[in-house]
Simulated assay, not measured.
Amino acid sequence: MKNRSPEESIILALTSAATLCLMPFLAWRLLEQDWLIASLNLFAVLSAMIVFAHVYITGQVIYARWGFAILCAVELILTIVLKGPSQIGWIYPVIIALFMLLTPSVALMISMTMSSIIAGVLWSQLSSLAYYQLLFSILATALFIYIFTEQMFKQHRVLKQLSIKDPLTGVGNRRALEDKLLELMSYKRAYRDNTSTLILIDLDQFKDINDQHGHNIGDQILITFASLVNQKLRNKECLYRLGGEEFVITAADKNRDKASILAEEIRELIDMFLFTNGIHVTISIGIAESQANETSQEWLGRADAAMYKAKGAGRNLCCVAA
């Protein structure tokens, strides 16, 4: 079975629930020969099924979530316009659906707009007490869900950052690097003239530094190193920690000649810099330009082989992969 994203699963679940909930009412309206509401329910059921099929087949959710959200709001408004206060109970599941489909601020805006229209429609159909009870219950529901979903979105953003950031240095981690490599290789396949280059950096004899000065000093060196390198990078150049003392720079839209200039500048910068406790550090660098029809792992492997070639030649060098 295909793995679905959370967004896909939500839309598939909501459209399925909408279809199952509306089908009995559609049948009831047909039996009562209430053709106008039956037509409205039929349109809602068919639209929900189309959205379900679109997401199930394509996996694309951007237009689907917007389309289904607008469908829910419009369907509710039209139903209340035609059938009056008896249909007001549907507003609560619709508000919940809006917050599940859209960002909290957008969902709140649409909910308030929808509620304002419905309030105008029902103004003369309810007693003052019933009207204001309804109005404030809708407002409270929307605000409560907004606060809840806004906190969930904040937590999701924090967790997402933690999942792609190296906790020590703050640069991208291996997972983020793998995603970036796939993105660059996909772009390379789409635009064959496009060239990107990997710069793989290894801190020379870093184990000796840890053994002699301790891991705390080693960690401080890694943090400072990442900061120094980041200061040298420009647009479309990103730094990732591959693991241990190995780092990778992705230089999008740069061939190996231009990337070699950047790599040499970084090598010289680190060679001249004195780290914590006056420790001198050198780096070995492997440079690999992207090639057509290779995988991201093969590309990274060529950069790694070039880096080991630099180490074998005496360290503190840059080597370019064949």
Rank of each mutant, 00 (worst) to 15 (best):
M109W: 11
I118R: 00
F144T: 09
A38V: 07
L22W: 05
F144A: 12
N210P: 05
L168Q: 06
N316P: 15
L222F: 02
R192Y: 13
E268V: 13
T224V: 05
Y92K: 14
Q220R: 05
A305P: 04
Y240R: 07
W90N: 10
L233I: 00
G67N: 11
K188N: 14
G67T: 13
I287H: 00
K254N: 08
L76G: 01
K83Q: 14
L30R: 04
L262T: 03
L14C: 09
I147A: 08
I37S: 07
L36G: 06
E8L: 00
T15F: 03
P24R: 02
E245T: 04
I270Q: 05
Y131R: 15
K83M: 08
L22F: 08
P85M: 04
L222N: 01
S39R: 00
A288T: 06
M114H: 15
V106H: 09
A190N: 11
L162K: 14
T295Q: 02
L177Y: 03
L242N: 06
L262D: 00
A53C: 13
N216P: 08
E268F: 08
V55H: 04
V248E: 01
W35T: 09
C238L: 05
S127D: 13
A251Q: 02
T15I: 06
G84A: 10
F275I: 03
H156D: 13
A130H: 09
I50N: 00
F153C: 12
M112Y: 11
M23A: 05
T113G: 15
F153K: 15
S39I: 01
K83E: 05
H156M: 14
R267T: 04
H213L: 11
L159K: 12
I110T: 01
T103H: 10
T113K: 14
L31Q: 15
Y63V: 06
L78C: 05
L143G: 09
A252P: 01
S127Y: 11
I62W: 15
I261K: 06
L177C: 06
F52I: 04
T195N: 10
A64I: 08
L228S: 06
D34I: 10
E32L: 12
Y187N: 07
L233N: 02
N173Q: 06
G286K: 04
I57Q: 06
L82K: 04
G172C: 12
Q133P: 14
A140W: 14
A251V: 01
